[in-house]
Amino acid sequence: MTQAKPRFRNFEEYLDYDDGSDRRYELVDGELIELPPESEPNNAIAQELFWLLANAQIVIRRLIKLYACQIQVPVLQSGDAANRFPDLVVLREEHLRLTQSQLTIKLDMPPPQLIAKVVSPGKENTDNYQRDYTRKRAQYAARGIPEYWIIDPNPDRAVVTVLSLKDGAYQSREFRGTDRLISPAFPDLELTVEQILRAGQ
Rank of each mutant, 00 (worst) to 15 (best):
K123V: 09
I71F: 10
T161W: 15
A169K: 15
Q130H: 14
Q70Y: 11
L107F: 08
F50V: 04
G168K: 14
V118K: 10
P121K: 14
R131Y: 12
A54C: 07
Y148K: 00
I105C: 02
V162Q: 03
R157H: 13
I151N: 06
G177T: 03
L165T: 03
N125F: 15
Q171N: 10
E174C: 11
Q130W: 13
A141I: 06
K106D: 07
Q70I: 06
I150F: 10
N154M: 10
A82G: 10
R143G: 00
L181P: 05
I115L: 14
V160G: 01
S101E: 13
W51T: 03
A142Y: 12
G122W: 14
A82N: 06
Q171H: 15
L63H: 05
I105Q: 01
C69K: 11
R62S: 13
D80F: 13
L98K: 13
L66K: 08
T134G: 08
D152A: 06
Q171P: 03
A68G: 05
Q72A: 07
Y140W: 13
Q100L: 15
Y148T: 00
E174Y: 14
A46V: 09
K106W: 11
K166H: 15
D179I: 02
L88C: 03
Y170V: 00
I71G: 02
Q47P: 02
K166A: 12
V119W: 11
D179E: 04
I58L: 15
W51D: 07
L165N: 06
D127S: 12
R131M: 09
I145R: 01
E48C: 08
R92P: 04
R176T: 08
P146L: 06
P146Y: 10
F175H: 03
R176L: 06
L114S: 02
V59F: 13
V118C: 07
I151E: 04
N128G: 09
Q171A: 09
A138I: 07
L181D: 02
K65E: 04
V90Y: 06
L98C: 05
R84I: 05
N154D: 07
W51V: 02
P184Q: 05
V119S: 03
D132G: 07
D167Q: 15
P110N: 07
V73C: 01
R176I: 08
R173H: 09
L98R: 12
R173V: 02
